[in-house]
Design a binder for these strands. Sequence first.
DNA 1: CGTCTATTTGAATGTACTCAAAAGCGGTGG
DNA 2: CCACCGCTTTTGAGTACATTCAAATAGACG
Lengths: 195, 195
Amino acid sequence: MNDKDIAPLLEYIDNYVKLTEGEKKLIELHVSKRKYLKGQYIVQQGDICDYECFVINGCTRTFYLDASGSEHTVMFAIKNWWTSDLGSFTTRTPAIYNVQCLDNTEVLQFTYETLEFLYDQIPKLERFFRLIIERAFVASEKRIVSNFSLTAKEKYVKFQSQYPEIEQKVPQYMIASYLGITKEFLSKIRREMKK
Amino acid sequence: MNDKDIAPLLEYIDNYVKLTEGEKKLIELHVSKRKYLKGQYIVQQGDICDYECFVINGCTRTFYLDASGSEHTVMFAIKNWWTSDLGSFTTRTPAIYNVQCLDNTEVLQFTYETLEFLYDQIPKLERFFRLIIERAFVASEKRIVSNFSLTAKEKYVKFQSQYPEIEQKVPQYMIASYLGITKEFLSKIRREMKK
DNA sequence: CGTCTATTTGAATGTACTCAAAAGCGGTGG
DNA sequence: CCACCGCTTTTGAGTACATTCAAATAGACG
């Protein structure tokens, strides 16, 4: 077993494109593994986001702190998810989101330069990232529609069935902020659901 | 002037990747131009979405008809925008959205097979679509956050400044459904804003 | 001019929010 | 082992933003 075991990432990539052994080695050479402690920030609002991260284990949440000081959760990430402030990462501009670890979390990281280098060396990776971002975009549009067409309770029920593992790892008030409702109201929804 | 003038598309692509003359010819050979009349549907909910479309002129809206029969506008598209039901197009499954022309609209269309062929022939196109979908995804996430953190009036004001051309082309009730509010309430917001 | 669709208006209603306070829960130290 | 602390969740009362419904008005088009 290697200290920098990138098998989970390679397996994941293999679902989308087929890499040669040489290409796998090249990725291994350029990706770095990093451990964050519970509470640490991978990205902070205002900084330029340096990494595109693939989560090996643990849990993160991406949130936005608005002018009035309230938090809005943009996404969570667990095992085999990607996380970053993609807008900041790709355009090298200050991040608008924070990415915080909710548990001790291990990630594999690509810097911007690394990723550009790898795109150049392994054109298949362009295809790979195109495919996963297509999926992310489709999911994001669906979330917009859900937010419009569902009541708070329906959104919560849908969230539970869609992301059962996340529901268990994450405090309730963060789920509320992911759903776009207040923690108090989510608590009332749950009370009502018990009957 | 060619009957199938794809210059607007080539110019657009040129902002992201540099194509050779041969590559441009190849695209020209495989893309088709099509004119839709006002009111026509490019995609209908339930059908498999056959085309990825680049809008040359005119205007479209993408919307979702929910179980209770109300419409939710997912996006609009004008000159130099892309439109499709991307989830349906990429996975060859029934569309969940309708794409309807709000004006006579000319588009350049790629079928799934065409696009796969072109990805294969012109790997730079993988990069191109990766880049534009990255942007679309970032915009989509921002919209989610806006919807959470802004009041209806703030969302409307933001929409006006972000998409002034669209506001002029599109009936008010569709803007309301894009913002996730009722047409009546948007009307009240506008009344209040006149003072 | 008449018809169809889009927009406006107002009254009643509802879903979700705010604020403040209490209760629960997990960890830490005396 | 209990007491205390900080953080999360629950509760309730009052409120606000936005919806629903029904009807009137305005605009576009043949």
